[in-house]
Structures are given as C-alpha cells and as structure tokens.
Computed example of a mutant assay.
Amino acid sequence: MAFSARVSDAPLAQINVTPLVDVLLVLLVITMITSPVLTHKVKLDLPQHGIVDVTTPPEMVQLAIHADGSMTWNDAPIDASMLSSQLVIAAHQSEQPHLVLDPADGVSYQTVASVIAEAKQQGLQRIDFMDPR
C-alpha cells in the first residue's frame, strides 16, 4: 500500500461539497418541519359544472367594513354590539340570509377575521366576500 505525498504547492482546484450538503440538509429539515404548519384547509363551496339551481336565492345581507373599523349592515351604520345581535337574528331565521362581506382596502385582517368568526359562532352558514368588480 503506497501513499503518495503531495509535493506541488499548486492550489487544489476542487470544491469541498460537504458544507454545501450540510446546509442543504438543514434547509430540507426546516422545510419538512414548517410545511405542515403553513398548510391549512379552507372549505370552499364551488359551483358545479352543469348543475342549475332553480330555487329562489336566499335574502342577501351586505356587511361593509370601512377602513376606520366602522360597519354598515345593508347601508345602516352599526357597531360591534349591534352586529352581534344582528348576526343572532339572521342565524335564527327560518331561511338564513346570505352574508356578503365588503371590506374596504385599509381594513386590518384581524377585524375581518373577527367578524367572520363571530358570524360562524352565531351559526351563519353562508358567508362570502363582495366581488370587487
């Protein structure tokens, strides 16, 4: 078994890939750990192709949330306590209305999320967003 000693002082022109592999494995582990946290399911009620609904649409209630946090229920100004009572009334009707949210551009996510959570907590089934067109 012969070992050769390197006698030349020329630089070695090879890349050490061990640190690169270590970094890639760490990134892979981080990705594998965080990917289940980032994916959460949202139930969507998408229209089916070819199925025509001939029933009369339920009453539609428009809830506009303005940039300053104020709200209007079918163009009538309401506050948070009135919103809660309106949602209770709407949820206990024989045919629940279709709640359509119209948040303004400057509304915080927390405000919209709390309104949706309140509506779901009161039992409203149909909550949609206003079409921006």
Rank of each mutant, 00 (worst) to 15 (best):
S70L: 09
L28A: 15
V7P: 04
S94V: 10
P58M: 00
F129Y: 15
L24V: 13
V29E: 03
V88P: 01
A80K: 15
V26W: 10
P97F: 05
E59A: 12
Q125I: 06
I30R: 07
V61D: 05
L44I: 04
M60I: 07
D22S: 09
M1P: 01
S94A: 14
H49G: 03
D75N: 15
L38H: 12
L20D: 03
T55E: 11
M1S: 05
R6M: 07
A67G: 09
D68C: 01
E59F: 07
V23S: 13
G69T: 06
I78E: 06
S108D: 11
L101W: 04
S85P: 06
P58D: 05
V26Y: 09
R6C: 09
V54K: 10
I127H: 04
R126N: 14
D75Q: 15
E95H: 09
G69A: 03
Q122M: 06
S70I: 08
V21A: 10
H98S: 10
P57L: 08
P11H: 02
L44T: 05
H49N: 11
V37T: 07
G50W: 00
S35Y: 09
I89S: 13
L46C: 00
S85Q: 14
M1L: 00
T111R: 08
T56N: 09
T55I: 00
A91T: 05
T18S: 08
S114R: 15
Y109E: 10
D102T: 01
R126L: 07
A104V: 01
H92K: 14
V7N: 12
I15K: 11
A113Q: 12
I116H: 01
M130P: 01
M71T: 08
V21D: 03
M60H: 07
V17Y: 08
V88Q: 11
A113V: 02
I30E: 07
V54L: 08
Q93C: 07
E59D: 11
F129W: 12
Q93F: 07
T34L: 15
M130K: 13
S70R: 14
E118Y: 01
T55L: 08
F3C: 07
A2H: 13
Q125P: 02
H92P: 06
S4W: 08
H49M: 10
S108R: 04
I89T: 15
A10N: 12
M82W: 06
R133N: 08
T34Y: 14
D128W: 00
V21Y: 03
Q86G: 10
I116A: 00
G106F: 01
G106C: 04
L44G: 02
A90K: 02
I30C: 11
S4K: 13
V21M: 09
K41N: 11
